[in-house]
């Protein structure tokens, strides 16, 4: 745990960017400097090749927070900070962001984090 903590941030950012671009065929994947609870962090944006959810708009810009699973824990204050940092960067608070979680075996899984309580998607 301690060992891989040293890498959190930098490694996951690059791997998530590469995974988005090369594996998931996203376009315009970019980095944005952010400050989460006093720590400099990177938040990504990109455009998925097709709508992620039926109700999305075509070519909708998606916000992605890369995280290394080895960092262990997360609290609601920090998640709230992501939303407010994105609001600072882009001018509005998004309804959802995507968590790009990377494991130490390089597996990357993506989860939506919606702001507030939402209904499950119809599918």
């Amino acid at each position: 745990m301690q060992e891989s903590n040293r890498f959190s941030g930098k490694l996951s950012k690059e791997q998530v960017m590469q995974n988005l671009t090369d594996y998931n065929a996203w376009s315009s994947v970019e980095e944005h400097e952010a400050c989460i609870q006093g720590k400099p962090t990177v938040i990504l944006t990109g455009i998925p090749p097709k709508k992620l959810v039926g109700s999305d708009q075509e070519k909708q810009l998606e916000w992605v927070v890369p995280l290394d699973i080895a960092r262990g824990e997360l609290d609601v204050g920090e998640i709230n900070c992501w939303f407010s940092e994105i609001e600072r960067i882009s001018g509005h608070r998004p309804g959802r962001i995507t968590l790009g979680t990377q494991n130490d075996d390089s597996t990357i899984v993506y989860y939506f984090v919606h702001d507030g309580i939402v209904k499950p998607q119809r599918n």
Binding site: L52, V76, I79, N80, Y111, F112, V113, D115
Partner: peptide, 13 residues
């Protein structure tokens, strides 16, 4: 007032 977030699998990746 608690703050809540809803989490689901993003369906790709």
């Amino acid at each position: 007032k608690p703050i809540s977030f809803s989490i689901e699998w993003a369906g790709f990746g």
